[in-house]
């Protein structure tokens, strides 16, 4: 038996909106730790890792570890039927082939049940090594989204370079080139608006903007985004989910030949 009651149901709606275009089908894993997901896009260039910790739910019952295969597009369609202020409860029976999403309006005058068929998904769970990153940039998530959107209208790849000077987003294409530098800007008054750089050594990597743009669909989940880079590893773009956990996107860099 599984029963997870999330008072801030909008968080789950936002999570699905942020991953449904990147990943088609995925297994949601439920354990004492929380409700989690790890999945790659179909071309194995990006990986998403989601954790909603059990403590973040008002009620969290998971009698035994469960893995539930879901089509994320269909799940998103159902969650779109929940109001932004609704409480969402996820229910499933052990060994069952369906999951139920229950939506309760804040004053309890409307209760909806949506039942969705589960799928068998052969997923490959990957071990993500703990890493010390060469550079970690924390910046306003809206600023990052704006930069990715602006640059993707010009070219399809971006070079992200971190130095003491700041973080630089550069592109070069048929019509010309662009450089956007965000300088370190620790803001004591408004920490969400600060750009903070922790750098062990300078790092510069090239990425497909199409994926970066897709990650920024998680912007409504958090005011800030953290970008962690090392020269030998996929970049990690992380959005914290208020007191509950995180959504992390890993993107393999383009490799010089």
């Amino acid at each position: 038996m599984l029963e997870l009651r999330l008072v801030q149901g909008s968080l789950l709606k936002k999570v699905l909106e942020s991953i449904k275009d990147l990943v088609t089908d995925a297994n949601f894993d439920c354990s004492a730790t929380g409700f989690s997901l790890q999945a790659m896009d179909s071309s194995h260039v990006a990986l998403v890792s989601l954790l909603l910790r059990s403590e973040g739910f008002e009620h969290y019952r998971c009698d035994r570890n469960m893995s539930m295969g879901m089509n994320l597009n269909n799940m998103a369609k159902m969650l779109k039927c929940a109001g932004n202020d609704d409480i969402i409860t996820i229910k499933a029976d052990d060994g069952g082939d369906t999951v139920t999403f229950m939506f309760e309006s804040p004053n309890q005058d409307k209760i909806s049940d949506f039942e969705m068929k589960l799928m068998d998904i052969d997923s490959e769970h990957l071990g993500i090594p703990e890493s010390e990153y060469h550079a970690i940039v924390r910046m306003p998530s809206q600023e990052f989204a704006r930069i990715c959107k602006d640059l993707s209208s010009i070219v399809d790849t971006v070079v992200i370079s971190v130095s003491k000077e700041g973080v630089k987003f550069s592109t070069r294409g048929d019509i010309g080139s662009a450089n956007i530098v965000c300088r370190q800007n620790p803001s004591v008054d408004k920490p969400d608006e600060a750009t903070i750089i922790e750098m062990q050594e300078p790092v510069s990597l090239t990425f497909a903007l199409r994926y970066m743009n897709s990650f920024t669909k998680a912007t409504p989940l958090s005011n800030t985004v953290t970008i962690s880079m090392s020269s030998e590893l996929p970049v990690v773009v992380e959005y914290k989910i208020a007191d509950m956990g995180y959504i992390r996107f890993y993107l393999a860099p383009k490799i010089e030949e």
Binding site: V45, A46, H125, L126, G127, A208, A252, I255, E256, E257
Partner: peptide
Amino acid sequence: DTRQGNILSFFKKS
């Protein structure tokens, strides 16, 4: 020239 890297060449199946 660059080619797109693959997640599976960085993270191994667990």
